[in-house]
Every structure is written in C-alpha cells, then in structure tokens.
C-alpha cells in the first residue's frame, strides 16, 4: 500500500524537478497546512509500511494537439522505502531510478552506465530527496505546502484532488487526482499546457 505514498512522492519530485524555477520546500515550515481532516486521515490509515512493493502500471499520456495517446507499460518496484525502480517494457525498454541522489534514466541499450546527467543542473537534488522522504512518511504538512488537498470521495472508494498553492507550480500543473480503494488505483495529472498523464496501477500486485 505504499504505492500511493510512492507515487505522490514521485509526482512531487518530478514536478519540482521539471518546473524550471525550482521550488524549494522548507523542512522546518510547519506553517500553512490546514488541520488534516478526518477523511484524509482515514485514507492515510489505509496505507501501512511495507519494506518492498511491486506492481504493474499502464501510463497513458495525451499530448495537446496530438491525436494519438502515447501509451507505455511495465512494472515498478520500491525497495526500503527510498529506492524506486520504474521499468518501462513497452514500447521500448527503459529503466528510471529515483533514489537519494536524484533521478537516473537508463535504457536497455546502454545498460546501467548511461545515467542521466539531469542532476548536474540542479543543486537542489538533495533537498528534493529530502522532500521525498518527508512524503514517504505521508507528511501531510509538507504536501500541504504545495497543494491544497481535497477529499472528493471518502474511503472506501476514495478520491483525492491536489491543487497547487504555489504560483510557480500552478504555472505548470493544473491539478492531480488520486483514486483508489484498498490501494492506489490511478493518478491523473493535468498540466496547464493541456497534456494529461494517467497512470493506472494493477491492483493486487503487492507482495509482503
């Protein structure tokens, strides 16, 4: 059930990483979060910590002004709460790893050696991973720094909506929707430029 936490962490990480004016979260900022409401707490309670999670996903990306969706699928695994491996199997093979040191991309072709140099331009990487850790522990205050979290539907068939608070984030991301039951079912991210990314998780993949 850690999947939700992971996915949210991932989304936030990427969002921050790809928003050109990087947004720095303050670890000591306890300020602007609203009191976590009961329903949110209830949903949070559905997730308990597991050391290893695996699953499969299907991602559908709709690009604005381009009629065909870009679909990819594969599997993912989370090890020790801080190491995400995102393995794309279709249409090409590619592995994305997110860990303490940031974001790494490796394709089958050039194996593990060719990791992305994305991090060079971003000295904030260590801070981003710090946020990831905060998110791993479902740190609602940190989440609330960047998003207003709204419970659309309460558990068991829950649905959350995250709207950016920060104008920089809001310039890129319109909103994020999360749905699920006993585990995270789907994440939908809407960008302001009109692109939409939906990631559907195949349930029952968790292994203790």
């Amino acid at each position: 059930m850690i999947a939700l936490r992971w996915m949210t962490a991932l989304l936030i990480t990427l969002m921050i990483a790809f928003t050109s004016n990087s947004v720095l979260a303050q670890e000591n900022n306890q300020a602007l979060h609203s009191a976590p409401d009961e329903e949110l707490l209830e949903i949070r309670a559905l997730f308990d910590s597991e050391s290893e999670v695996m699953g499969r996903f299907i991602q559908t990306k709709k690009i604005h002004n381009f009629q065909f969706p870009i679909i990819s699928s594969g599997s993912f695994e989370i090890i020790n709460n801080d190491h995400l491996k995102w393995i794309v199997e279709q249409p090409i093979q590619s592995t994305i790893i997110i860990n303490e040191s940031g974001l790494h991309i490796a394709t089958q072709k050039d194996s593990t050696a060719a990791t992305s140099r994305e991090n060079e331009a971003r000295p904030q990487t260590s801070i981003i991973t710090a946020i990831v850790r905060a998110l791993l522990s479902m740190d609602t205050p940190t989440l609330s720094e960047h998003f207003s979290i709204k419970v659309i539907n309460p558990a068991p068939k829950w649905q959350l909506e995250l709207t950016p608070k920060n104008t920089v984030v809001a310039n890129t991301i319109r909103k994020i929707a999360l749905t699920g039951e006993k585990s995270l079912g789907e994440i939908t991210l809407e960008e302001t430029r009109g692109d939409t990314t939906s990631i559907r998780f195949e349930s029952g993949q968790e292994q203790p």
């Binding site: 990427l14 790809f18 381009f66 090409i92 994305i96 394709t107 991210l189 430029r193």
Partner: peptide
C-alpha cells in the same frame, strides 16, 4: 525516451511537440 515513458515525465511549460 525515459522522460516520455516515465511517470509524469516531461512536465514543462513548452509543448512536447
């Protein structure tokens, strides 16, 4: 490619196209 097929990859202000 990693960004395109990765989770929520390629978020940005300019169109992917």
């Amino acid at each position: 490619l990693g960004k395109l097929f990765g989770p929520a990859g390629g978020i940005g202000s300019t169109s992917f196209l």
